[in-house]
């Protein structure tokens, strides 16, 4: 038998393909691998019955193990959160080898860092941030804390939709993983890092870190810096009490109003007033100049 020669690249490809889960007997067919994390891998798949593309997350863990419990929790949490900013779950099932999987909408788009490569407008960035806050606030209203908010877990869809992804370590009221540190350093609240109990204010902290990242850290305008700082206060009680309150303060900044997190000096207030009403000020100034010129020329003629 002549054995087909395979280059290292092809071997890697075949190795990946060979490890894809076996969906024989189920309505899904794997197209490609999208990503891989600690809990499992996410695949682009085809729903053979409906003929549409889906995303399928498959547990790494053996049945009954902790990883499987998390994947199951994630699917159930997502199923309870019907919001335009949260990916809907379509199905949950088991593979022939016993591993759990769930099927969700396939989001076509880019992660926030990828998307922002082509965005320079601060206002647009803040608009995205407010929509992230909307989704997170909705989850909080349903008793769900995300606990891993970071730029990589935010996706911008093809039509500009903003989606909060990866609810793998989210917790519902009354549940939790005390004594286990889960999350991403740099975006994780201090109490979460200490494996203490967390609530919605842990997400407020992470949102503050995302806002700081969005605005370029120390280069951000002072009011935005102050908003991030308040959201990221070490003590949860010193933070915004809700994601909505944080979002509202950002919206005030975007509208040119004073923000709660920052007490302005007279100079800053004047500058903000000038920026906010720049057009009106220019028009009034132009009108006054014209009136002065008109008075001058009419005086000169007489």
């Amino acid at each position: 038998m002549t054995v087909t020669f395979l280059s290292d690249d092809v071997m890697s490809r075949l190795q990946a393909v060979a490890t894809w889960p076996n969906f024989d007997g189920l309505r899904y067919t794997i197209i490609d691998e999208i990503g891989r994390g600690g809990m499992g891998a996410v695949y682009r798949g085809l729903d053979d019955v409906l003929g549409r593309e889906v995303a399928i997350k498959v547990s790494n863990g053996v049945p009954g193990a902790e990883l499987e419990r998390r994947l199951n929790d994630e699917a159930r949490i997502l199923a309870t959160l019907e919001h335009p900013g949260i990916v809907p779950v379509h199905d949950v099932g088991r593979l022939a080898d016993g591993r759990l999987f769930y099927v969700m909408k396939r989001v076509r788009g880019a992660t926030l860092p990828e998307h922002l490569a082509g965005v320079t407008s601060l206002s647009e960035k803040l608009g995205i941030f407010e929509r992230v806050c909307d989704a997170v606030n909705f989850a909080h209203a349903h008793g769900v804390v995300h606990r891993d908010l970071k730029p990589d877990n935010i996706m911008i869809g093809e039509f500009g939709e903003v989606l909060v992804m990866d609810w793998g370590i989210a917790q519902t009221a009354g549940s939790g993983d005390r004594d286990i540190v889960l999350g991403t350093r740099g975006f994780m609240a201090p109490e979460q890092e200490r494996a203490e109990s967390t609530d919605a204010r842990a997400d407020v902290y992470s949102l503050g870190a995302v806002l700081s990242w969005l605005c370029g850290g120390s280069g951000a305008p002072r009011p935005l810096g102050a908003i991030s700082a308040r959201a990221m206060a070490a003590e949860p009680s010193s933070r915004y009490s809700t994601a909505l309150a944080l979002s509202s303060d950002v919206a005030r900044f975007r509208a040119g109003h004073a923000v709660d997190a920052h007490r302005e000096s007279l100079l800053e207030r004047t500058g903000r007033f000038a920026r906010t009403y720049r057009t009106a000020i220019i028009l009034v100034a132009a009108y006054l100049v014209m009136r002065i010129l008109a008075a001058y020329f009419s005086g000169a003629r007489s």
């Binding site: 054995v3 087909t4 075949l14 190795q15």
Partner: peptide, 17 residues
């Protein structure tokens, strides 16, 4: 091991064809 897997996969591709 790497070359063993290359040979294994090469045979499997040939058989699949």
């Amino acid at each position: 091991r790497h070359e063993f897997v290359r040979s294994l996969f090469g045979r499997a591709v040939t058989e699949a064809r």
